[in-house]
Design a binder for these strands. Structure first.
Lengths: 216, 216
DNA sequence: TGCAGCTCGGGCAATTTTCCCAAGCCGGAT
DNA sequence: ATCCGGCTTGGGAAAATTGCCCGAGCTGCA
């Protein structure tokens, strides 16, 4: 079991931006009790690195190209249900948070959080606790009170496709990224539009932006 | 003038994620010749910090909440045309790149770049050179050297149609509003896309939003 | 066991997009 | 005066996408 060793907490870093990873590594290692034992820039490598290094905590940005980060969470948890995965992303949409927790994440912090909040979250999940940043707790609280945002009715795949579409990807690019046929992506596109009530691609982009799914 | 001092290159860091900023700071300061003199997490603060610190280089993520990063670039350059601004973002769309350069950026590197490429880009723009990462050069090359900046080359009618489109109007609605045939609106739509280099309606909306043509 | 919902894609008519083209208008350059 | 170039407006036709229908496999849940 990934008991926290007396030597500190071992961390696997998953983010698709090299310089961002390097920055995190330096921030974490300056803490003394945190040690980055491996890095990965995609879901498949993350799974491989987890198998070889068995880290105490996986710090993972789930908005990566290619396979969904949620997929990676599920894979890792399938291999070792004791794995502690702390999702670390700039998105703060309630649907995403709920999807991450139901995929097996132990915590969810946004990049808007103070660095100290992030390292504390790492220590919390290493102890087996659940952790989330204040803003995440806030959106979850509001979400539980509201009738539900337009995005709540979307499935995980739909969310991912909407994110990529709103980010500017073409249908073919999305199909390639997610290993789907163009036809399937087109169908999702149509489904998303009908579910959200958007009559225009532009409205879809605005919706995604309004929900924090994508930044402009 | 922001001559590179003998002591090294002073950098203003602009990014809306605190831990990301802290990571960059550590990466940059480990270089010896780079010194982070200030940080900002939004466009307004970036302008203020620039006024007080007059850094050699501004390293800026333009995908920030609220006001556009492009606006911030314009403001800074309006105050000091010698300002060196290196855009640093995860987006690699030709429209955005062109918009950034026409707003006055000296360079554009993506977060997919190797850390060494980023620090070298900082040194390049500090010397007054233009810098861009390989992937950016590639998308610009593919975009061909069609024409100049993003929105400047659009006529009145095109701007108006783009505004309504990005606002969520359908082609027919725009045609009705402007007393045009649907065909004409379609032709404008196509023309705007080719002129701006947008390959997707979503990219068009993002461009319009980035240029302040529409608010999300 | 069965229902419900997600995921994935085929099919096909209807529409839209993509280009190419022409014509009228207007301002500026020659 | 004349011509050039750019804006505005639209036609046309092939290519692509959309809108909507469908079925099949899978998972979770009752």
């Amino acid at each position: 079991m990934s008991e926290v060793a007396a030597t500190g907490i071992s961390v696997l870093l998953v983010d698709d931006h090299p310089i961002v990873r390097q920055g995190y590594r330096r921030v974490l290692e300056s803490q003394g009790d945190l040690h980055v034992v491996a890095e990965a820039d995609n879901a498949a490598d993350a799974y491989g690195a987890f198998k070889t290094h068995d880290p105490d905590v996986v710090l993972m940005d789930i908005s990566m190209p290619g396979a969904s980060g949620l997929e990676a969470i599920r894979n890792i948890r399938a291999r070792n249900p004791r794995a502690r995965i702390l999702v670390f992303t700039m998105h703060n949409e309630a649907v995403l948070v709920k999807a991450a927790f139901s995929a097996g994440a132990s915590g969810f912090v946004t990049k808007s959080s103070a660095p100290s909040a992030v390292v504390n979250a790492i220590r919390s999940v290493a102890r087996g606790e659940r952790a989330m940043s204040d803003d995440i707790a806030h959106v979850l609280a509001e979400d539980s009170l509201s009738t539900g945002s337009a995005l709540d009715q979307l499935g995980e795949r739909e969310i991912e496709i909407l994110r990529q579409f709103a980010g500017g990807a073409t249908t073919e690019e999305i199909a390639t990224h997610l290993n789907l046929s163009v036809k399937t992506v087109q169908n999702y596109h149509y489904l998303i539009k009908t579910k959200t009530g958007a009559r225009t691609d532009a409205q879809l982009v605005r919706l995604a932006a309004a929900c924090g799914l994508t930044k402009i």
